[in-house]
Amino acid sequence: MIELRGLTKRYGATTAVDDLTVTVRPGIVTGFLGPNGAGKSTTMRMVLGLDHPTAGTALVNGKRYAEHRDPLRQVGALLEARALHPGRTARAHLQALAATAGLPRQRVETVLDLAGLTSVAGKRVGGFSLGMGQRLGVATALLGDPATVVLDEPVNGLDPDGVLWIRTLARGLAAEGRTVFFSSHLMAEMSVTAEHLVVMGRGRLVADVSTAEFIRRAGGDAVRVRSPRAGELAGLLTGPDVTVESPERGLLLVTGVTAETVGDRAAGAGIALHELAPVQASLEEAFMALTHDDREYRTQEQPS
């Protein structure tokens, strides 16, 4: 569990995080979404006690991070910037932390295995690819078998296999009852990984909703239908919660029904369809729209 209360961080004139109040619950993957510069990484560093808040508090599992006697067992983190010494082997990197935290030596082998790094554990990290470094970062995060896992842009630099691995891992960790806080600037990534979304723009909270709700609000269940008898079809689709728009002749944008329903109704009435597609792109668009104002403001503000 992560509880942020009025969390604020200013660097000189820049307000990186502005009065953020959010609770990140255990048992689900919470996506932390926002464009670059929104303040996600800063927030996560404050959760880890690395940066000191200008105002407000960040509690993890009920306490400030620094107050935990066993921090690595409470919180495991993969932070944005790579944090590995190129001259050290993967195993030595983990052993040093395991020794400091008083973790059993076996944990090092367990997480190396979990990250698929056993065969390169004795190699110096300097020779690792971005993806291998990221895997070692995840292994580091899980070293203390922590109740709360913080992952800052974990899919950056990963190949599709790696992305799938992280996604499955994050969901698995949540299913074990852990708190998983997973940041990304990519809506598409979040929509398939996270059950709940915390959306930030320019340091401020923009949305704190379930992913399903976010997608619904974003019109993610819209269906695009093209038919020579569009007007007739529109009449067949009416109902409560259903909206039908016709942005151009022969084209309908329908929300509140599935593509299957539209297809079935059209077939039932013998109406030919030239196109029938769920509208996926609107997700990214909704995210952009939500954070648009903040983005604009940011570009104007930057030169000062």
């Binding site: 932070l79 790579r82 010494h85």
Partner: peptide
């Protein structure tokens, strides 16, 4: 320079 100071201080927050 390597950034390991972050995991070092995460392990020993004092």
């Amino acid at each position: 320079t390597s950034g390991t100071v972050r995991s070092t201080f995460a392990a020993t927050p004092k």
